[in-house]
Design a protein around this nucleic acid. Structure first.
Length: 833
RNA sequence: GGGCGGGUGGCGGAACUGGCAGACGCGCCGGACUUAGGAUCCGGUGCCGCAAGGCAUGAGGGUUCGAGUCCCUCCCCGCCCACCA
């Protein structure tokens, strides 16, 4: 007989099993070389301070999956590391002067300690931090490889400059109202040289790859599609009479070009000063000046008023030779397209409003296909922007829009006045950062040879320990002469190092591959391991990374594919984006609201298993949840209830399985319930992750157990079977408790085993299939009773039974049955009139 | 303006290919045990109604024997993108 205690004491159970798992090394990847692999990955944390509930949730979701897959017999890789370079550590250093390295190391320690307390099944032997030179040296190595292949280049142009972080940002890091994704400060344009990845060269590839990502949430692939923003159109040249220059415009609606009644340039367009008529000059210059001083967000943001001025110049529509006025206006952006648009007020709402305001003619050239004809331009109350059939469009009249677009672009190419053109919203990824706590860019500037790459053999270029963190916007590394002054690898002459560092999104772009050989000093990761483990099977993380990390990481994987390092184009098959854990008040957890709950105290009070159960039971993984103390207590209550039923039925532990065959009546029903539960939980772990309903099924099984008092050995065997299934099915969700109870049931015989790597239970199909069912009886679609029949019952049998039901009889009385609908195993419906 | 999600009891959420709406949990109500219970166990709990019954899945229409689920019109909420030419 078991010597188990009456009370559930998470605190005494959890550390014990954590130690056992650790000693036995059950979470090491590669323990089952003959088995199929599964790579389960959660986005690694940036270790700022301690772990919060958001982390607890992602890792709990991933861990439940990893534990399940391990029990299914897969060789599971489930690693963890730290995204340790980046601005917060440096910004904090500005305040208290502590070295980012020191602070980061401490935070990592704290983080790791907390994660270990939750008992996540990570293969800790593979842990690394991106601030280790052993990691970032490979960032530098990739940089060199990409430089050789022209995927990295140096450019000078308008870069996004964060006025808070005092560094350049990538386009993706600029969020609404042109603010910094990280600190929220305004982002301004600054002309500055920077290093960039030619991600735009991969735009079509990245776009096409999205179609294959069927196990990614659609909203993420849609966001990427929109971000890449491929638009097919044409570029067309409008000649300027009396000038050798031409205005090149980009349009997606070349089919409307015969309706073009004016041309608009961005105020910054280089032709503006050249073409402006002398009598318009003052007004135009004043407008341009004013636009310069207006913030970009204000100029193009929501509710901005369309305004512009006429330059006095004219341009010729190459399709019909028409002479059109050239305007400049605030809504045309120099950085999009060619910085010039052809305006077709009848078929573009923005052009329509502008034309109305400045009394420019409106000419209809597209008619709707099916609806009634549009009135002449002056009679329109808004632009007709859909496709239709062309009219008043020379030789193209009568064509459908889509067809016309192709022919007109081809026509333009033949005449040398334009060509079909594909444009993307995606910009190249500028990754230089004027900060200290990042990967040094391995470049040396020499008077004689310019920018010279640091030879591979000299990597890593180490971050100097004596960081001077100034917060001035000058690269801090520039202030460390020992770092800056070096010799040219080509000529040996005096040279200066690049003092900018890499965007930390570089670190997270390939870390998943580094887990394959985290300590390898010869290569970023070994090829044979890439064959074994990649791609990632399931990746769990927040949807906020939909465009940024998840785009960069797909880009990087393609580059690695080109380098022959990986053997598929996509880094990860399936993506799970988990929702936010809000405060109990439904608001985002924040010090400001005083609604922050952290894992530590919750684990102290209830144990890690209770916290995990809450994370999984509260809702499906994708949805946001509100922290709820009551709900958490409810889960603690459930685990205690599980514990107590094991304790109360400890006399069943020693009953032999052979007695199972004798189970009858309520205990046969229990066996059915047990096997149905196995089926339900197993299904919940596959496909859509339904942890919440899986746990609900376990609760039902427990509720059933409480209703039964076993009297015979057959009864006890059925109870024991249920308890064993319960412990096993609980293992992915509440692993410590599951392990403890499982060993209690099995006794000394199980001493050498760990539930964490035992096989997942199978259900007996014969027990899952019910032999009798409840059939709903409806009269005219309304429920009037129910009957118990065998699953095989035929319609006439069910009908006869149903007609005997009193309430059914009452509703059938005096009516004619016109029709009977019978759905086997579900319902019978009498249609009467 | 565009795209993608959502809208079901007091709350979190269930509901397979159209087939008994509300599983499971929280909360609440009642009972048992108890010196006591905020522990535990048992029972109840969508709304109206004494009941029979009626009404209920954002609103309104439709298809169907039957609609949370399918179709149409509309409203609201969340997220992402956005004067993108």
């Amino acid at each position: 007989m078991s010597s188990m205690n009456e009370r559930y004491e998470a605190k005494s159970i959890e550390p014990r099993w954590q130690a056992r798992w650790d000693e036995a090394g059950v979470f090491r990847a590669g323990r089952r070389p003959g088995a199929e692999k599964r790579y389960v990955l959660e986005m690694f944390p940036y270790p700022s301070g301690a772990m919060h509930m958001g982390h607890a949730r992602v890792y709990t979701i991933g861990d439940a999956l990893a534990r399940y897959l391990r029990m299914q017999g897969y060789d599971v890789l489930h690693p963890m590391g730290f995204d340790a370079l980046g601005l917060p550590a440096e910004n904090a250093a500005l305040k208290d002067g502590r070295h980012p390295a020191e602070r980061t190391r401490e935070n990592i320690e704290a983080f790791r300690r907390e994660m270990k307390r939750v008992g996540f099944s990570f293969d800790w032997s593979r842990e690394f931090a991106t601030c280790d030179p052993g990691y970032y040296r490979w960032n530098q190595w990739f940089f060199l490889k990409m430089l050789e292949r022209d995927i990295v280049y140096r450019r000078t142009g308008k870069a996004n400059w964060c006025t808070g972080c005092l560094t350049v940002l990538a386009n993706e890091q600029v969020v609404e109202d042109r603010r910094c994704e990280r600190c929220g400060s305004p982002v301004v344009e600054k002309v500055i040289p920077e290093w960039a990845f030619r991600i735009t060269a991969y735009a079509d590839d990245l776009l096409a790859g999205l179609d294959g990502l069927v196990d990614w949430p659609e909203r993420v692939t849609t966001m990427q599609r929109n971000w890449i923003g491929r638009s097919e159109g044409a570029e067309v040249d409008f000649a300027l009479p009396g000038s050798p220059d031409k205005v090149r415009i980009f349009t997606t609606r070349v089919d409307t070009i015969f309706g073009c009644t004016y041309v608009v340039l961005a105020p910054e367009h280089p032709l503006v000063p050249k073409i402006t008529a002398p009598e318009r000059r003052r007004e135009v210059e004043a407008f341009v000046e004013r636009m310069k001083s207006v913030d970009a967000a204000e100029r193009t943001g929501e509710g901005a008023v369309k305004e512009g001025v006429f330059t006095g110049a004219h341009a010729l529509n190459p399709f019909n030779g028409e002479k059109l006025p050239v305007w400049i206006a605030n809504f045309v952006l120099a950085e999009y397209g060619t910085g010039a648009v052809m305006s077709v007020p009848a078929h573009d709402q923005r052009d329509f409003e502008f034309a109305r305001k400045y009394a420019i003619p409106i000419r209809v050239v597209i008619q709707p296909k099916e609806r009634s004809r549009l009135p002449a331009g002056d009679g329109l109350d808004k632009a007709f922007t859909e496709d239709g059939v062309l009219e008043d469009s020379g030789g193209f009249s009568g064509l459908a829009s889509a067809d016309a677009r192709l022919r007109m672009a081809a026509w333009a190419r033949e005449r040398g006045v334009g060509e079909p053109f594909v444009r993307y919203h995606l910009r190249d990824w500028g990754f230089s950062r004027q900060r200290y706590w990042g990967t040094p860019i391995p470049i040396v500037y020499c008077e004689a040879h310019g920018a010279v790459p640091v030879p591979e053999a000299e990597l890593p270029v180490l971050l100097p320990p004596q960081a001077i963190i100034t917060g001035t916007g000058e690269p801090p590394l520039a202030k460390v002469p020992e770092f800056v002054n070096t010799t040219c690898p080509k000529c040996g002459g005096p040279a200066k190092r690049e003092t900018e560092t890499m965007d930390t999104f570089v670190d997270s772009s390939w870390y998943y591959a580094r887990y394959l050989s985290p300590h390898d000093e010869r290569v970023p990761f070994a090829q044979d391991l890439a064959r074994r483990w990649l791609p990632v099977d399931v990746y769990v993380g927040g949807p906020e990374h939909a465009v940024m990390h998840l785009l960069y990481f797909r880009f990087w994987h393609r580059v690695m594919e080109q380098l022959g390092m990986v053997f598929e184009s996509e880094p990860c098959k399936r993506l799970v984006t988990q929702g936010i854990v809000n405060g109990p008040d439904g608001r985002k957890m924040s010090k400001r609201w005083g609604n922050v709950v952290t894992p530590g105290p919750i684990i102290d009070q209830f144990g890690a298993d209770t916290m995990r159960m809450f994370m999984l039971f509260a809702s499906p993984p994708e949805k946001d949840i509100d922290w709820s103390d009551e709900q958490v207590e409810g889960l603690f209550r459930f685990l205690s209830r599980v514990w107590r039923i094991f304790y109360a039925r400890r006399d069943t532990f020693a009953v032999p399985d052979s007695a199972l065959a004798g189970a009858a009546g309520a205990f046969l029903e229990l066996r059915r319930r047990t096997h149905r539960t196995i089926k339900k939980v197993t299904e919940g772990m596959q496909g859509e992750l339904k942890f919440n309903t899986s746990i609900a099924a376990l609760m039902e099984l427990v509720n059933d157990l409480y209703q039964l008092e076993p009297a015979s050995d057959a009864d006890r065997a059925a109870v024991r079977e249920a308890l064993l299934a319960l412990a096993t099915l609980l293992a992915p969700f509440a692993p410590h408790l599951a392990e403890e109870l499982w060993h209690e049931v099995l006794g000394p015989a199980s001493r050498e085993l760990l539930l964490a790597e035992c096989p997942w239970p199978a259900f007996d199909p014969a027990l899952v299939a019910a032999d009798s069912v409840t059939i709903a009886v409806q009269v005219n679609g309304k429920l009037r009773g129910e009957v118990q029949v065998s699953v095989a019952a035929a319609e006439n049998e069910v009908r006869a039974l149903a007609e005997r039901e009193e309430r059914v009889r009452a509703h059938l009385a005096g009516k004619t049955v016109r029709k009977v609908i019978f759905v086997p195993k579900r319902l019978i419906n009498f249609v009467v009139g």
